[in-house]
Design a protein around this nucleic acid. Structure first.
Length: 376
RNA sequence: GGGAGAAUUCCAGAGCGGCCAAAUGGGGCAGACUGUAAAUCUGUUGUCUUCGACUUCGGUGGUUCGAAUCCACCUUCUCCCA
């Protein structure tokens, strides 16, 4: 359950209690789509790098190894050896990202598997059943993430359908818990706000789902191509209508600057593939801006990736060595890079919490909001 | 000693008279990435200030309106026979 500790303006410092531990917020969840952090990291690496919540994906795990197998293995926690909170994404984002391979109806969505093309049907009930089998701490409602830009009429219809799907999610989760078949009987459910970039749709939808007494509220469908000013505008429009006694999660966001700006607008929880994916591609976050470790200028640079960082990579190795590992295509380079970026993001959120505790978040914001997103 | 073949832009390797500054890989340089179909994708890679111009395909001559492509010789390398 969410407990607000302190506010600075709209920004919130709080904590979120779950059966798998308490999350200090604002927090960043580390993405482990297929129950592993891409780049070769395990749950133990996440622990070492101050990760609070691991995020896994319903769709991917349903395909492989299948949620029945995960259930047979005792659930995600036992399988991955991660003992903290796990949030499972519902598969809703794949409605968006697999857009060329899908068909949406009131019942749900028919996908083509990205692995072998076979047809898969997933609706609210299927998503809830899969997430129950996975045994995550937090299940996300099955929603439609509408692409941007979108027609108003389509956004409205989609939004209303997502609201109906949410009720079905809630009903199905209740049914599963009552049946005694859930891997985690205390599994929480978060609802997801949609409405594209239309403030009235967003607000109306938010008011509607706020009445459903869910365990947390997410803002979805942002950072999908719209300018960041649009994203901030929507967050600020929706925020006053989000229950203040519930945790708020901005899905799929974002850059360090996006996170700082969104915390300022009242968001508590984030996730993003950016730190891990960009790390695999050689883009590393530092407290002075973003570097591309593959650039020739680092060939003889013996300084660490970031002098302020105390991750395994920065404590032990030079930029020159990291560049070499990337150019030589050595797995170690990628692993160290992912460790560094996740450590950076988790530290970023720690510093944000510290600033909120000290009442100095505004200064922190002004110093870092642009700096951290700058390519150097 | 005799014979056969080959030399192409950073590398490998196409090209075999004009559509060639020269395919395709690799390498190099750079860019993108926001609830992960992503260890992926894109651009660029002779010189000059863009259109365009200029100098390139071992070397030197030659044939031709035109040569990386044909001819002669030279150089180097590979292979075969002694």
């Amino acid at each position: 359950m969410y407990k607000l500790i302190k506010k600075e303006g709209t920004a919130r410092r709080g904590q979120f209690e779950t059966v798998h531990g308490t999350v200090q917020t604002p927090a960043f969840m580390n993405v482990a789509t297929a129950a592993a952090i891409k780049g070769g990291l395990s749950a133990f690496d996440l622990k070492d790098n101050h990760c609070q919540v691991m995020l896994c994906n319903t769709y991917h795990l349903h395909l492989r190894p299948s949620d029945e197998v995960v259930k047979a293995l005792g659930g995600l926690h036992k399988m991955t050896r991660w003992d903290g909170p796990i949030l499972t994404d519902s598969g809703g984002f794949q409605v968006f990202s697999l857009s060329k391979l899908r068909k949406i109806t009131e019942e749900g969505v028919t996908f083509s598997s990205h692995l072998d093309g076979h047809r898969i049907f997933m609706g609210p009930e299927e998503s809830m059943r899969i997430q129950a089998n996975l045994g995550s701490t937090i299940a996300m409602a099955f929603d439609e993430c509408v692409e941007n830009p979108a027609e108003y009429a389509y956004s409205k219809a989609s939004c209303e359908r997502t609201a109906r799907w949410l009720q079905r999610c809630k009903n199905e989760m209740t049914r599963i818990k009552e049946s005694g078949e859930a891997v985690n009987p205390d599994q929480l459910l978060f609802g997801i706000n949609q409405g594209c970039c239309f403030e009235d749709l967003r607000i109306e939808h938010m008011k509607q789902i706020a009445e459903m007494d869910l365990d947390g509220y997410a803002i979805g469908g942002l950072a999908v191509g719209e300018p960041k000013e649009e994203m901030y505008r929507i967050i600020s429009a929706v925020e006053p209508h989000m229950p203040s006694d519930k945790i708020r999660y901005l899905m799929g966001v974002g850059t360090p600057g996006n996170i700082i700006e969104s915390v300022a607008r009242g968001v508590d929880l984030f996730d993003c593939v950016m730190p891990s994916r960009n790390a695999r591609h050689g883009h590393l976050f530092t407290w002075s801006g973003i570097i591309n470790i593959k650039n020739a200028k680092y060939a003889l640079d013996e300084s660490p990736v970031d002098t302020e960082c105390d991750c395994e990579c920065c404590k032990n190795f030079s930029r020159a060595y990291m560049r070499h590992l990337f150019k030589a295509d050595e797995m170690l380079g990628m692993r160290l890079a992912v460790i560094h970026n996740l450590h950076f993001y988790n530290t970023l959120l720690q510093r944000i919490r510290d600033a909120l505790d000290d009442g100095t978040f505004e200064q922190f914001h002004d110093k870092y909001v642009d700096l951290l997103d700058t390519r150097i």
